[in-house]
Simulated scan of single mutants.
Amino acid sequence: MPETLDDSLALALAAPHLGDGPATAEEIGDGNLNVVYRVSGGGRSVIVKHAPPYLKVVGDAWPLSQDRVRIEAEALALHGELAPDRVPALLAVDLDRAAMVLEDLRGHQVWRTQLVAGVHVTGVAEQMGRYCARTLLGTSDLLMDSADRKRLATRFVNPDLCAITEELVFTAPYTAAESNRVDDAAAELAASLRGDAAMRRAASQLLWEFRTRHEALIHGDLHTGSIMVADGDARVIDPEFAFIGPMGYDTGNVVANLAFSAIAHQELGDGFAGQVDEYLMDFWGALSEEVRLIWPEDHPWDEIFLSNLLEDSARYAATELVRRIVGLAHVVDIDSLPDASRLRAQHRAVAAARSLLLGPPVRSPHDLWSRATTEDVP
């Protein structure tokens, strides 16, 4: 079994990438899966990330394969080739120790943190749209050689982390699962989901599609907490959930997490919601523009593709909106609101999910965003 990452091991892994002189290691991050250190020395710093053989937030009771280190490293390398400068540089991988060394994005902040604080960061939404277009199309049968595409699929079989998504996103929120975490005030809302046969049926269908639509190498957990930002520079981190899956899952998660930000700022009445509205339109506009730019001329159905991707994004956004309200992992955008506003925001998110999942297919980004952020509740 690989060693457990501690200060001394983090220092040893980082040493070849630091300057001369003494070095220090500091554990950082509050993720659910991995142990992360920042190691500094000789005027340089790097990130050392280790994957323990279990889900960190639960412990030994939920074992996980450490192959997720290899998957994350290979996803970073491939996505870095397809979308240069949109992921941190991968400096080293030590599979025996289930660890990797990464560029330290010092000076960047988690995008969710900036959104909650109402801090505008330029260029991020557009860069994320182009990142999605390049990584999704670039790992699809549309742009890849058929044999290379089949070999790619064998490298990204990720059963343990897919099982987490399948349970925590598509299954548990619609049941009385022990993993769910529900505010006392939202107990009736959670019960309404458990009793909503149409929502359970739709989520079950999306679970089937998540398992069977092998469209592209998706990040698998692309939300505003896995995007690091500075003005004019967005970087995507933590692709350990990467696998060959439905493109709309990535784009839908971006949409849903921006919707949480918009709903929260609407409840606060501070005016920043209008900026978040622009982020969504910038994201989808850049994605669409990049798709048209790289689309092969001998396959003239790019507008059909974008229409289908929009519909899929809406449906997957719905499951993200639900699971972040009644499932295991919440978002600080909503949980940090005052009690009355938080409950109303929770109801609004679930109402939006019902509209996106059970209503007619969305026909435009404006339709999608309106239904994601302005659904009212009694």
Rank of each mutant, 00 (worst) to 15 (best):
V57P: 02
V57W: 00
V57R: 02
V57Q: 01
V58Q: 00
V58A: 11
V58H: 03
V58S: 05
V58L: 10
G59F: 08
G59Y: 02
D60P: 03
A61E: 11
A61T: 05
A61R: 04
A61W: 01
W62M: 14
W62A: 06
W62F: 14
W62S: 07
W62N: 01
P63L: 15
P63M: 15
P63G: 10
P63K: 14
P63D: 12
P63N: 11
P63H: 14
L64D: 00
S65I: 02
S65P: 02
S65C: 06
S65N: 12
S65D: 14
Q66F: 05
Q66N: 14
Q66H: 11
Q66M: 14
D67M: 05
D67G: 14
D67F: 02
D67K: 11
D67E: 15
D67C: 05
R68N: 02
R68K: 05
R68F: 03
R68C: 01
V69C: 07
V69D: 02
V69E: 02
V69S: 05
R70C: 01
R70S: 04
R70H: 09
R70M: 00
R70V: 02
R70A: 07
I71H: 00
E72N: 04
E72L: 15
A73R: 11
A73G: 08
A73E: 06
A73W: 13
A73C: 14
E74A: 15
E74H: 13
E74F: 14
E74V: 15
E74K: 14
E74C: 11
E74D: 15
E74Y: 10
E74I: 15
A75T: 15
A75C: 12
A75E: 12
A75Y: 05
L76T: 11
L76D: 03
L76E: 02
L76Y: 08
L76N: 00
L76I: 15
A77S: 12
L78M: 15
H79W: 07
H79R: 07
H79G: 10
H79N: 08
H79T: 12
H79A: 12
G80R: 05
G80H: 01
G80T: 10
E81D: 11
E81A: 14
L82E: 00
L82A: 08
L82S: 07
A83P: 02
A83C: 08
P84S: 07
P84I: 11
P84W: 04
D85S: 13
D85A: 13
D85F: 09
R86D: 00
R86T: 13
R86I: 06
V87N: 01
V87H: 00
P88G: 07
P88E: 08
P88L: 04
A89Q: 08
A89I: 09
A89N: 00
A89E: 08
A89T: 09
A89S: 11
L90I: 14
L90T: 06
L91E: 09
L91F: 09
L91P: 05
L91A: 13
A92R: 07
A92F: 01
A92Y: 01
A92H: 09
V93D: 09
V93A: 11
V93G: 12
V93M: 09
D94R: 06
D94N: 12
L95G: 04
L95C: 08
L95W: 07
